[in-house]
Design a protein around this nucleic acid. Sequence first.
RNA 1: GGCCCUGUCGUCUAGGGGCCUAGGACACGGCACUUUCACUGCCGCGACACGGGUUCGAAUCCCGUCAGGGUCACCA
Length: 514
Amino acid sequence: MTIRTRFAPSPTGYLHIGGVRTALFNWLLTRRQGGQFILRIDDTDAERNRPEALQPILEGFRWLGIQWDEGPEVGGPHAPYFQSQRLQSYKDAAMQLVDSGHAYPCYLAKEALDAERKAAEVAKQNYIHRGVHRNTPPAENRRLLEANPAPIRLKVPEGRTLGIDDLIRGRVEWQADLIGDPVILRADGRALYNFATVVDDVALGITHVVRAAEHLDNTKVQVVAYEGLGAKAPTFGHVPVVNEPNSKKKLSKRDMKKFVTPEIRAKLKLVGWTDAEIESRDDLNPATVAFYREMGYLPSGLVNYLGRLGWSLDDKTEVMSLETMIANFSLDRVNDSPASFDPEKLLWVAGEHMKMLPLAGRITGCVPFLVRAKIIAEPIDEATQAKIARIVEACGERLKVFSDILQHAPVFFRDPEYDPKAVDKRLRKEGAMDLLRAAAEELKAAPSFAVADLEQVLKPWCETRGVKIGDLNHVLRVATTGQQVGIGLFETLSILGKEETLRRIEIASQIAAK
RNA sequence: GGCCCUGUCGUCUAGGGGCCUAGGACACGGCACUUUCACUGCCGCGACACGGGUUCGAAUCCCGUCAGGGUCACCA
């Protein structure tokens, strides 16, 4: 039998990092076993339902390479895949439960209910609601409902033990007597989450419900709903929640702005976002997938990291391709304790994936970041394109994410910003200026500025002068880039070219003399 | 507070009675390589929450304690 899994996001305008990890587990399981992964849009909450808020979610999945077999834009045999378009089926199902004696109308006013709940709370007792029409004959309940619409409650059986055999947690049980009868349909006919999700999962033929552990307690009510509907409950797998970095608390969708630390803000601004945009958009923070896309993370790196968060292939594999993950994924190797999101390890994994990307791909990936940061302008002429190619190549393994190019490329397109400390340390040092002038003369006479030729000229030159190549490196680097660290010196000079190199040495000499 | 879940280096994890003097990875510290940085290699730091049991033998099984988390709506 082929499996059918689903992920049911609300259109919130962003793809949450914790949610996508759950979706990924569903998807890997489905690809591994052969089956369909379904995207169902949970848009029953009118307030949160904005049509344009769906696109960022679909884009996020597409960017990561997680394709859905049925759902928005691709359709499928069980369309529609929007819960807001399936409302009638929830009503029908609820009435079916009333007719079969598994549900009943509840005429208790909300205020009275709240009062009861409050009283129980004060008395430090568990509040377990049981409506008066619980045992009214079904036909009578239906008549009541037709005459006077009311919320419908699910009848939780008494004296029973409810349980599931969770694929990740094993056997989990609840005493039915400790559960109040939940409302499944409001008086106006709108379904509640716990009911709509069951009705849909039955209708869509979902076989495996893999979801975050925060839903574990919902399962008991859902089990009752499946029973009432006469449907076989799917197999459940509750994956542990993802915690905030350095925390034991769930990585929440609320208050994501707090992750925008000064450092994160600086990074966002470096790639071209303004303070106003960072404030107004809710996807520009490290708890969303969009953030990593904006920072130039390779999607395969993010997927690798997220897949390894709570799941492992064996005792040593860290870096792996999507194919490897699919070929080896199973729920029994998913941990049952929460995992903390670690941005540093994510960066490392992303860097490992970047190393595996051929040069052409790295160049293509970097260009948009240079454009966005206004280092270069479109259309890009041939000379600029060639220059970028040389810079990216010279960066080598210094690039972990595409936006790292912004630490290395700008100096090749505009005058250096001289770091005062670097100038002090390297250019105002005893003998530094003499060395710099002499080197400039040598460079002026150099027949070629190709990397290999520069190296062949400068190294012996140092030797005959009794100067360490390291000292020359320091002086020339600061003189031409203003910084103490950067890509290889010979590459730097070569990309700059003779004229520009000599011009910068002149500028640096004047600055150092001040 | 009730119910439910979970406890292995700071973090992600391997382990499921003897292979454990607990392995790997990130981070951190050191050394080597090197024209700086990065990369790479080597070394180091660093954990079975606690207490009882079961057993010849427990990180592993059982019980309890403690700790952390999740959830308790006519939200999703």
